[in-house]
Design a protein around this nucleic acid. Structure first.
Length: 921
RNA sequence: GCCCCGGUGGUGGAAUUGGUAGACACGCAGGACUUAAAAUCCUGUGACCUUACGGUUGUACGGGUUCAAGUCCCGUCUGGGGUACCA
């Protein structure tokens, strides 16, 4: 009887749907287990083969935990707001809500096709008003909060107002710049002044930031849409424009976000990434007097090197640039600042080959030596970090060193490895160890001592103090876009004001025209009636990470319209036991979610202070991308082999219009309007595309769908194959070579339970060989599931089934537990076998088979492990023995007794106290 | 540039704590069954030398620690992810 996967999979898919087999109840006597996937963005390209990698792994865990007796919550939903749907709307006029609905429907069908055990009744969608009502509600919570650094938690803004009214500004609160005022002064302030001051304290506040403005397209671009300083669409110039925007004050939580990492079961590398992102550093803030009056504040982590300062560098955006530039330098400085302004931060940091900068003409005075120190402007200094100015110590910082070499500035060395070393330098000596020289009162000290001493001297002189600094910046929460959550904020006489909670959700208004406004603002600005209570509403919308920062809480109680989730549900499900998702979210999403969760925790709205207990980072299934090369400023494309002769930028091209890396030129012209008149420079009459292995993503046009695989081999084969491909954590490019192997395995499994006539399982007792095969498998599975090693699980299944096939084992005693064991991995076939074994309830309600170690021990004695025809084993010896005695001990061992007939010890590898390896041949 | 992860046969990968490198699977070659093909099954398969027995060598590259290194340390090369408006 043949394994007919289509019939079987269709049957059980509808059975699970109709019976709601995987519905989770928010109350149960069983212990709870919450397994969560990072929910997908429903891209127009459909679910790609990379998505299921993590989903299959988490589904296996969900199913295993159900079999182990847990009440499992395993939900799915969609992160449905975002840029691609809006871009699609701009080019086709199709409303993002419509495309999003189409895409989510397709995703649901594709997901159901793979047989995931999701509780579909808990499906959520971040673009659904019933969902984003609560995103807006949490935003208002943030807007109406300030951070009390004395008790280290968020508090209502009303309480801050009360404090200002009674005591003025002298409180321990986390804020921007400090404005000092008395209670009386506060009371006399205008509404506008009060609002401005409160903005400096709110956890959601307004401030200024740069956006990528593209004049030609008339819109603000995401970083992803900018390539080499030009817009990806059209290749138009992009400039950076400063605008007022919303921010979230995540920096108030920097210490807690850092310290609480210790309690999480996340990989060390991921925690390390978050730590580095938060980037806590301890150093000093120091004021340098300027020659012509005024002061320059810098932050340094290396106050010990203060005698090595040979110049200062300001970020081009620094407010001091204007005041410090002398008339002679004015032209040059303005030219430089204008140029640097349009380079992205990443470009500025990555481009170390071209060191750029300009002298302001002004000098600072070294606080200890009194020397004149020139003040430069350089774009490797970022305005957003520290004070936007550095004291440059070229001898001990690589970036400062390159700058000094470029502009012929001195590089005095102040630290040597050991006393008496030469002061010559060919590169910066950055090590934080050595002895101070040429440093007056620091001479002879170690770096560590010198840091402490320098800080105390700086403090004594009253020119600075010890300071902690974080690399983490507040999160920019504004987007000049349509397809996102509207802010429940209106401008009452120009003052940003929260809408009442009772008015939520503030619905995203219907629009027909999503084209850019031609100004750096959201399409919502085109609406005349976008008003609340007669006042204009905020026209920016929230970014992609708004909805995804709290969705894991909504699954606990998705229908609730009184609260984002009920207290009971939150108490019961508490937190996510296992979170599976890609490393691409290592800092963004995972940091924002932790931050939101902590704010809610401060208000007692969630029971625990961290949302994700254990995290597994699935690797990425990568795609094979193709590229075309556009000559800068033209609509001409040059073939890969000739591109180095031109100034080009590489653009992704749809892999579907490329065959064997040769571009179908006609298809390319039809692909996008802007390419209709494209011209080509060919090689050998062909346009050859470039190739790169990278993230599979719609924007890279390299997506492969799982649908065809399910059609050809079935979902169970796809599930096993994706697991068999390698460790879940590992990234690899997609390819289907070898999928036959896992399909063949399923056929073999099927044939264990069937002969030609049909189902064929006997009730007789199994022999020791069969029992050993089964229990070896149980043991392997238990160990491997624990360490998330599903590829070796699949191998173990194959080995076991091969052995059982050879033994022609068809005893119920063996096959019943085998069906349960395979069910998390290949659920459809397992359900079919389970029902044929005479069970009425789903295999999901079965009990995970227990290991009987006695079968293994017995088996081990009867059937020694053997490789390449040689028998080997390890023997532990108690103490040092001479070779002769070891040999005797080996021969006396009962295992040797069993195997040594006619054989001798061929090889022994001996280490002190222990024999490691004995080969008998 | 900076932070994080990886590099093992023709291919995906295994080796769990430093102790048999290449499990399992794909591919390939040969064979069985078949008129033939498909399917299935069996055998072989890192490289080099050898008719064979067997030997030598081998985990990106260069060093080091160790009785013992794919695994630990230092340096280099190289691929991928992130880099704050893709999600």
């Amino acid at each position: 009887m043949e394994y007919s996967f289509k019939t079987i999979e269709n049957k059980w898919r509808s059975y699970w749907d109709e019976n709601k087999t995987f519905k989770a109840n928010s109350s149960s006597d069983k212990p709870k287990y919450y397994v969560l996937d990072m929910f997908p963005y429903p891209s127009g390209a459909g679910l790609h083969v990379g998505h299921p990698l993590g989903y299959i792994a988490s589904d296996i865990m969900a199913r295993v935990q159900r079999l182990r007796g847990f009440n499992v919550l395993h939900p799915m939903g969609f992160d449905a707001f975002g840029l691609p749907a809006e871009q699609y709307a701009i080019s086709t006029g199709k409303h993002p809500a419509v495309t999003t609905k189409e895409n989510t429907d397709r995703y649901i069908a594709q997901l159901k096709n793979i047989g995931f055990s999701f509780d579909w009744d808990r499906l959520i969608n971040t673009s659904d008003p019933n969902y984003y009502k609560w995103t807006q509600w949490i935003f208002l919570k943030l807007f109406n909060s300030w951070y009390d650094t004395e008790i280290n938690r968020a508090r209502p803004i009303d309480e801050l107002v009360a404090i200002f009214e009674n005591d003025g500004s002298e409180i321990l609160a986390y804020h921007d710049e400090h404005a000092s005022f008395t209670a009386e002064e506060w009371q006399q302030m205008s509404e506008q002044e009060k609002s401005d001051i409160l903005m400096k304290y709110r956890l959601a506040y307004q401030s200024y930031a740069y956006v990528n403005w593209c004049e030609a397209l008339g819109t603000v671009l995401a970083n992803d849409e900018v390539k080499d300083g030009l817009s990806e669409r059209g290749g138009h110039p992009v400039e950076r424009k400063q605008m007022r925007q919303w921010f979230l004050r995540i920096t108030a939580y920097a210490d807690r976000l850092l310290n609480d990492l210790d309690s999480l079961e996340w990989s060390d590398s991921l925690k390390e990434m978050q730590r580095n992102w938060i980037g806590k550093s301890v150093g000093a803030t120091v004021f340098f007097e300027l020659e012509n009056g005024g002061k320059l504040e810098i932050f340094t982590t290396r106050p010990d090197t203060i005698f090595g300062v040979s110049f200062m560098v300001l970020a081009p955006e620094s407010e001091l640039v204007n005041t410090l530039t002398t008339p002679e330098q004015k032209d040059e400085v303005e030219k430089y600042v204008q140029w640097a302004k349009n380079r992205s931060e990443r470009e500025r940091q990555a481009d170390v080959k071209n060191v750029t900068g300009v002298f302001t003409g002004s000098y600072a005075i070294h606080p200890f030596t009194g020397a004149k120190v020139p003040v430069w402007i350089g774009d490797y200094v970022l305005a957003g970090y520290g004070t936007g100015a550095v004291m440059a110590v070229p001898a001990h910082d690589a970036r400062d060193f390159r700058f000094a070499k470029q502009f012929g500035l001195p590089t005095p060395r102040v630290i040597v490895e050991k006393e008496g070393d030469s002061l010559e330098l060919t590169e910066a000596y950055e090590a934080k160890e050595g002895i101070l020289v040429q440093s007056e009162f620091l001479n002879g000290l170690t770096v560590k001592e010198a840091i402490a001493k320098a800080v105390s001297e700086i403090e004594n002189k009253g020119i600075g103090c010890k300071k902690e600094n974080f690399r983490l910046r507040d999160a920019n929460f504004s987007r000049q876009r349509y397809w996102g959550e509207p802010f429940p904020i209106y401008y009452k006489n120009g003052i940003p004001t929260a809408m009442p909670e009772s008015e939520l959700p503030l619905l995203l208004p219907e629009m027909d025209d999503f084209k850019p406004t031609g100004r750096p603002e959201s399409p919502l600005a085109k609406l005349n009636d976008w008003k609340y209570d007669g006042y204009p509403l905020e026209t920016d919308t929230m970014p992609g990470f708004a909805g995804s920062s709290w969705y894991f809480l909504r699954y606990m109680d998705p229908e609730n319209n009184q609260a984002f989730a009920s207290t009971d549900a939150l108490k019961y499900w508490k937190d996510v036991d296992l979170y599976v998702g890609g490393t691409e979210h290592a800092v963004g999403h995972l940091l924002y979610s932790r931050f939101w969760h902590k704010v809610l925790f401060d208000y007692g709205l969630v029971p625990v202070n961290e949302p994700f207990k254990k995290l597994v980072n699935q690797g990425m299934i990568q795609g094979r991308s193709n590229f075309v090369y556009r000559i800068t400023g033209t609509n001409t494309f040059v073939s890969h082999g000739l591109k180095d002769q031109y100034d080009t930028s590489a653009l992704h091209v749809d892999v579907n219009i490329v065959k064997n890396d040769v571009l179908d030129i006609e298809a390319f012209k039809n692909w996008r309007e802007e390419y209709a008149n494209a011209e080509f420079i060919l090689e050998n009459d062909l346009y050859i595309c470039g190739v790169e292995i990278e993230k599979m993503s719609k924007s890279k046009y390299n997506v492969v769908n799982p649908d065809q695989i399910v059609e050809d081999f079935g979902a169970d084969t796809l599930r096993l194959y994706e697991m068999f491909l390698g460790p879940v954590e590992q990234s690899k490019p997609w390819n289907t070579n070898g999928i036959e192997g896992t399909h063949r395995f399923l056929k073999k499994l099927w044939n264990l339970y069937h002969n030609k006539e049909g189902f064929n399982v006997v009730e007789t007792e199994a022999g020791p060989k069969e029992r050993k095969a089964l229990h070896t498998l149980i043991k392997k599975l238990n160990d491997d599931i624990e360490r998330f090693s599903f590829n070796t699980c699949v191998s173990s299944f194959m080995i076991c089934v091969n052995e059982l096939s050879e033994l022609k084992a068809n005893q119920r005693e063996i096959l019943e537990p085998l069906a349960i064991l395979i069910s998390p991995f290949a659920p459809h076939i397992a359900e079919e076998l389970w029902s044929k074994l005479g069970h009425e309830e789903s295999v999901a309600y079965a009990k995970f088979p227990e290991l009987n170690p006695s079968f293994l021990v017995e088996a081990n004695f009867n059937y020694p492990v053997s490789f390449n025809g040689k028998t080997r084993f390890q023997l532990e010896l108690p103490t040092d023995l001479d070779i002769k005695a070891i040999e005797e001990a080996v021969l006396a061992d009962e295992r040797t007794e069993r195997w040594k007939e006619g054989k001798t010890i061929k090889k022994m590898i001996i280490v002190p106290k222990r024999i490691i390896n004995i080969v008998i041949g």
